[in-house]
Structure formats: C-alpha cells, structure tokens
Nucleic acid binder design. Sequence first.
DNA 1: GAGTTTGAAACT
DNA 2: CAGTTTCAAACTC
Length: 752
Amino acid sequence: MQDSPVFNYISNLSPIEPVKSRGNDHTFNSLTFASLPSIFTSPQNVSLGETRFSLRRHHSSEASNSESFQTPNPSDKLGSVPVAVEQSYFGSKQSECFTPGSSGTEVNNAIPTENLELAIELSNTLKYSSGSPDRNAPCDATDTVLETAATPASLVQSLVHHSEERHSSFERETHLRRIHGMEREKEAAGVDWTRLISDASDLLNFDSTTIEEGSDGEDPKTVDPGAICFISNILQDNHDCMEVMESGPIDSSEQYELGKFSNQSEGIGDLKETDEAPAVLSRNLLDKLNVDDKCPKCIHSSCKHSSQSYAISRRCLDFERAETHKRKSICDASGSYSVPLHSNCEVTLVEKKLIRTTAGCDYSSSRLPGIGLHLNALATTSESNLSKVVNHETQASESQVTETPNSKISSTCLTPSEVSHDESCKSEVHIAETPPEACAPVGVESDHSSPENKRLKSKHVGESLACKRCNCKRSKCLKLYCDCFAAGLYCIEPCSCQECFNKPIYENIVVETRRLIESRNPLAFAPKVIGSINAIPQFGEETNSTPTSARHKRGCNCRKSGCLKKYCECFQGGAGCSILCRCIGCIKHFRLERWIYKFLYFQFILLLYQIEAEESEIEEHKSRVRKKDATDVGLGRVKDQDLPMTLSGICRPSGQLTASFSGKPKIFSLHSVLSSPQPEKHLQVIPEEGTLEALDNSCSQPSGVKSTSPNSKRVSPPHGGSEFGSTAWRGGRKLVLRSIPPFPTLASPRKH
DNA sequence: GAGTTTGAAACT
DNA sequence: CAGTTTCAAACTC
C-alpha cells in the first residue's frame, strides 16, 4: 500500500496542518491531530504517553522525596499528586501535638515526605493490584501482583507507624532506603511494574496530554488537578463499588471495626488509640485501595469497607486536619494525645468519644450551636440506620442528629460526594456529626483575617478539596454562589461571609432555600464532579482500559481560560473536560475528541485513496469512451455510465458504505456523507480554512449532484485551489466533506 | 491589597 | 431558550 502512487500522492499532501477552529473549538483542536502513523495506534498507545508521564512523575516524586528527606522543606510542593495524597491521607500528622519549638518540627517536616512517597507507592501499587478483573479476593496469596502490592503496603504500615512514634531520622532513612531498594526491585521486575505504572497513569486520568503536549520538562506541579483526580479516581472506584453494594447490610468487618474501635475507645483510652491509629490508617488505606476492582464480584467486607473508605477519604480531606486541629486544642486543654482518625467509623466514634470525653470541656470557643448534620443527611436520616450503626449510642446520635441546639457539634463538612453517599450508604449518616473546625484546613488558624484566609484558602484548596470557606457578601450564603451552601455545609467560623444566613440558627431558611433551589434543579446540590465513567456513557472512550474518569456533571463552559485555570469547574474538580462541555479553546478536551480527529483523518485518507483509485479507473474508462465516441460521433449518444460525475458514478449502494478500517480501503462512498442527516454541529470537517469550508458552502445542495451539468457534460472544477481543493475537484468530481455521520454511528460501524 | 478577569448562577 | 446580570472566586499587578 505504501508503494502505491496514491500513498505517494497522499504523502505529498499536507492536510494535517494546524487548522483554525471554528464553532465549538474543542472539536477540532490541532493539537490532537495525530500524525499518520498514530492514526493506527491503539488506545494502549495513547496511554503510552501517560505511562511516560507517569514514569516521569514517579521519578520526579522519587527525587523529590530523596531531596526532601535530606533537606526537609515544608514549602516544597513536592509535586501535585504527592501533596494531595499526602495531605489527604497523612495530613493529620502535620498538626500533631508537637510542642512548639521542640525538635518535633523537623520530624514533622520529614514524616509527610515519607508518607508522600508511601502514598505514591501505595497508589501505584494498589492500583496495579486492582488491575486484574479476575481477582476475587484481596489477599490472594498466589497473586504475585498483589504480593507486590502488599509488600510496600506493609512497609507503609510500618513506616507510618514509625513516623507516628517519631523514630529517629536514621530509622526513617533506613526505611526509605528499603523502599527505594524495593522500588529498584520492582523496576527490575520490568513489565509488570511498567504495567502498574501504566495503570496508574490511567488512574491519573485527567488527561495528561495537557502536560505532554504543552510542557516538556515543565514543573509537575502544573498538574495539580491530577492530584485531585487521582484521589477522586481512587475514591470513585470505591464509590462505584459502593453503588453496587449500596443496599447491603452492614457487614461484619464494619461492625468489627466499629466494635474494635469502640472497645478501644471505651476500654483502653486515648493513648491506646493513638498507638493504633497509624496502623489503622494503613490498613484502611490498603483495604480501600485493594478492593478497587473487586467490587462487582465481592459481596464481602472489602466492598463495604471500600464504600466506607471512600467516604473516609473524602472525609479525611475535610476532617483530618481539622480533627488534628481540634485535637490540638484538646491536647492543649487536657494534655491528652491526639488521635489520628482515618476511618469514617473511627471518625464517628472518636468524634463521639471526644465529644463525650470532653463534655464540659469547651475545647473550641468558636463552636456554633446547632446541628452538625449535612442537610441532605438530614433529609435521609433514618433512625433505624442510626441505631443500626451506632446502636450503642443511639440516644446520643439521634438527639444530635435531630436537634441539638446546645450540642457541642455545630457544623458539618460533608463533601458533595458524600451527599450522594448519604442516600446510598445511609450507614454513614451518623458521621455527619462533626465539629465546626472540621472544615478548617490544618495549619490554618481560625482567624478571621479575610485576606489571609483567602490566600491560605487558595493555597490549600487543592489539598483540602471540600473545606469551603466562603467570602460571600451579597448572597447571604443562601445561593449556590456560596461554596459552603452549595456543598451543603453551614458556614463556619473560618468563613468570611457577610450577612450569612447559612447557619444552623437559620436552619429553616436554609432548608427552605435549598428546597427552592432543588425544585429548580434537583441536581443543584449533587456533586459537580462525578467520577464514574458509567455515569456518563461516552462514545469512543476506552471503557476497557480506563477504569475511571472524573467528569463534571454538566460540563464547563469556559471560553477564555482554556480550561486550564480554576475558573474551570472541570479543572477545579480534577476532571477532564468531557463531551458535555461547551468550552472553547479547551486544549485538554476529552480523549473522545482525539479519537474523532483520528477517525476523521483516517476517513479522509481513505477517501483520497478511493478517489485516486476511482480516478484512474475513470480515466481508463474515459479513454475507452473517447475511442467509442470517435466512432459514434454525430449520433450524440451519451450513456449514463459514461458520466462519472453523476451520483451513481460517485456513490455506491449503501451496502458498500462502510468505513471499515479492515480490508482494502476500496469503497468509502460519499453517499453516507452526502445523505447524512443534519450534521452535528461540532463534527463538521474543516481541515483547512478556505478549502473544505469553501467546498462546504459551495456544495450545500442537499442532493450533492450539482456536479453534473444539465446536459450531462462534465463540469469543470474551479482551478487554483489548495492541494485539497484540487484534490477535491480532481477528475471533475466535487468532494463534499460536508459532515460526517453522527458520531454514535461512527462508534458502531456495524450499523452501516 | 486593590482591581480585573472569569465563568457559574441567577435572572429576565 | 437565549441573552443579560449578578456574584464570588481566581487571578494579576
């Protein structure tokens, strides 16, 4: 094929020049036009770049870790993913009850770095471990993959525990060296580890092409949303799992956790909890991540645990820091130890425990009176569920949930994601009880200096994700403008809002307003970013290779930001833009678009190839006809088959209308193009300004047969066109690439 | 820190 | 439903 003159001709064309887009700009983005060879790349090839990216990221974080270990620098951003991961899972350590000015500062700086690396290792490893859909059990001893995952996991556990115990830096270094050693082993493992990274890159499915295309050698921190997406993806997997299991009973492991922790909290005390917590963290994290792909099959505890952990993690983003902040206060007040919380069960129970144990001890002067329940949770709260989950605290729970104006609990920090969880996993309702400080990011004191708040907020917004600290002035925090209100949260002390009505004392107003808004838009308070690909079935997406892909529920409408700034809700939510987006100039648009580009380009090549073939055939036929005409001159006989310009000469029966990529590209009729329904707005073929576009305009006749003259004579094509134009008119035929069939039919060629 | 830009939400 | 206004966050200087 490559030796054919057609290909030589095609190779001389240059139809893939960057084109000026029009209309829906993200539809035709030159950046996604692949070179010819890449047309035939499989989705796996697409992920190669992601793999490279992931590797790059991996090494980058690795280097950063080493460096950070030697010279702990709290201001070091350490890359984007690490920050998010670290802070989501290990952030609580940063605000432990270190004595100010003590040597703990150094430890405090170093530990998160370790955890950071561990988190990366863990995420990659566990993602890998979840990559096999055949796995039924999380602890299959024969699964070497899982073994690979388990080893660093145990190390993580060990390390976290060590860090919790504030071991010496030498010991930490030893562990780090062990990790690095393991990593080298894994790298030596070769293919499997590469797959792991590749899968992890899929996990980091925030469209890494942005980085690849736009910035070689650019600082990884530009991909902050990826960190968010990373977490979201992890969590979403569990969310998916949770959805499968949403109506299941509370499983034994949960009860076990509950009971265990309850026993701890009741029988052993804070000190014990402190010692156990890091290990619990590790286990929970591992369990959560390990169950990623088991969900469809498992009816076991891991799933429930997973669903819990999802909420845990999201909640950890909110709570851990605040929790430590609160605990710090407790420490200051009572001298007790901090209790890192990493499970929602634990959160709940320890929350309650703290409430109980600190009853009468007003550890936070900033607490607001009122209920601390998410509004959605309020609507869906079931006493039976409450009693089911926390039957040992039924009384307290219900009283707090229903109405506790004098409760020490005042506010809620359920994330939007949890809103959905409230409905599907009502066993978590009890977790809604949260102290108001829960929304305050760690390290941010609850002062009211608005600018500082603002700055710090922007600094930590990617870290804490759901900690809304609004600054509303006119909306009274009763409109969706208000992040707190939109997230279903009451405004709390760190908020700098004015004339705020989004407070428990105005509960009726808040509820009523919510109801009003929900009447207009039932999904107004739903999570803006949904992470499951199943939530938005999309054509062309590699559903098999992409486990999850966060998407904005409505898509963005960005025009100027290129969807690369936080103005973009997709970007902000760590989600790649999707087919739902109406954004203009988005350079990181959903991979579907790239798929379309490739498809169109391939179509175009096939079309040219066919034209060339037909052309030679026609020329041959013409020569024969001329000879015949020479003999029949004067008779004026003109046969229809002698007119290649008629529709019949161009088109083929629909049975031949195939865009099949297999077999010889013999017939790719324009019939489907010409007779296609109203072309989709953003699927018009506009490879080059002034060429096809002009053709498009000139060929807007629905029949598309104007190329035949009234007297059945060939119509001379216009001259002087571009390469494509000349091609389009070659042989006296006008090629009308007015549109392509609607994409769904493209996605399923069997329909043709 | 003030002013500008941006895009979602709200409104018409 | 489309266009406009309002709003608050993000961003710039």
